[in-house]
């Protein structure tokens, strides 16, 4: 049974936990900084703490690690949110944010920049911008292939997503085949990373994530009804065609944004909603807010490990999320049959 009070407590607790882990994470890396010091640096502006740290440490914390950690949280929240919404929309627990081919479209866009230098005058931002444009373009294509009049039949949508995704993967493979010395860069990008992302990326990602969260929170009752199919939802007074469009556009935009800043980080959108449902039950009034923070927490932790496991080099984030995500998912599948 849904209880608002319980939801607020869980969400609030997770929020505090996320903040704590983010603070710890900011301190961890090649040059470690104690959490207390990190906290003092972060809150110096508020509490007016007298600096007892070096300028270098301040730069590492505020200029390098903090934006990276925040970006990780935003990306994780976005992907988990998109996954939860799409799983309800498709009534399929195997759905994830990349199900409609956004990842392969974005990857193609990024590869084109790497290999052919299609920079479209954005210079250093060419990769994220092209990834974003290609990600959204893929959805536009998939959507229009599947569309019948004003309606989007869910099954056709899934199939056209699979087909167009395969097409773009092939194109991408071809581009990589001809890539020569750029192959490494493409590979690293497609495996996902937050390495070297500064505040500019945070400012780009923040509005998308916030808008996504706000829109999804207002749609939680509708997402619940959608779990029983479009027809059921319609009978409960939901404008299903409009809801489908909103969900598709919101998830596509936040997913494309996430992919454009961090590359392809798999498994987050698939397993976080699952884990959350196992704990809270499938009611989206709880699942959506809890997913936001769990997703954020997961990526922040994963990025922390990515930085330290093979230091001084960095592991691509996507490898790490898949490495812990896939076995855990298999464990869930075996132990909780039918209880998704």
């Amino acid at each position: 049974m849904y209880q608002r009070k319980r939801t607020v407590i869980i969400t609030g607790g997770l929020f505090l936990l996320t903040l704590f882990v983010m603070t710890v994470s900011v301190g961890i890396g090649e040059s470690g900084i104690a959490p207390q010091k990190v906290f003092d640096i972060l809150t110096a502006g508020i509490f007016g703490t007298t600096p007892y740290w070096s300028v270098g440490e301040e730069t590492i914390v505020l200029g390098i690690r903090l934006p990276r950690v925040i970006l990780g949280a935003l990306v994780g929240a976005s992907l988990a949110l998109a996954g939860a919404a799409l799983q309800s929309l498709f009534r399929n627990p195997m759905a994830d944010p990349f199900i409609l081919g956004i990842s392969s479209g974005a990857a193609l866009g990024a590869s084109l920049v790497f290999v052919y230098g299609l920079s479209v005058a954005f210079t250093i931002y060419s990769i994220p911008v092209m990834a974003f444009i290609f990600g959204l373009g893929t959805l536009f294509l998939v959507y229009n292939v599947a569309r019948v009049g004003n309606m989007i039949p869910i099954n056709t949508l899934l199939l056209s997503g699979v087909a167009i995704s395969a097409l773009f993967s092939a194109c991408n493979s071809f581009v990589m085949f001809t890539a020569g010395h750029n192959l490494n860069a493409i590979m690293f990008w497609t495996m996902g990373s937050l390495s070297g992302r500064g505040w500019d990326y945070v400012w780009v990602m923040l509005p998308f994530t916030l808008a996504g969260i706000i829109i999804m929170i207002t749609l939680t009752r509708h997402l619940n009804a959608m779990m029983f199919g479009e027809e059921s939802a319609q009978y409960l007074g939901i404008n299903v065609e409009r809801l489908k469009k909103i969900l598709l556009i919101v998830t596509a935009v936040i997913t494309s944004a996430a992919v454009s800043v961090s590359g392809i980080i798999g498994f987050v959108g698939l397993i976080i909603p699952h884990i959350v449902r196992l704990v809270t039950g499938p009611d989206h009034r709880v699942v959506v807010p809890v997913c936001v923070f769990t997703g954020a927490l997961f990526i922040v932790l994963a990025d922390m490990f990515a930085r330290v496991i093979i230091a001084p080099s960095e592991l691509p984030l996507g490898i790490l999320t898949a490495l812990c995500g896939a076995p855990f998912f298999l464990y869930l599948l075996r132990s909780k049959r039918g209880e998704l």
Binding site: M1, F228, R277, P282
Partner: peptide
């Protein structure tokens, strides 16, 4: 109706 999710009966009726 079908759903793959373990939705409680009371909450379903509440829908």
């Amino acid at each position: 109706v079908y759903t793959p999710f373990a939705f409680p009966v009371y909450d379903y009726v509440m829908l």
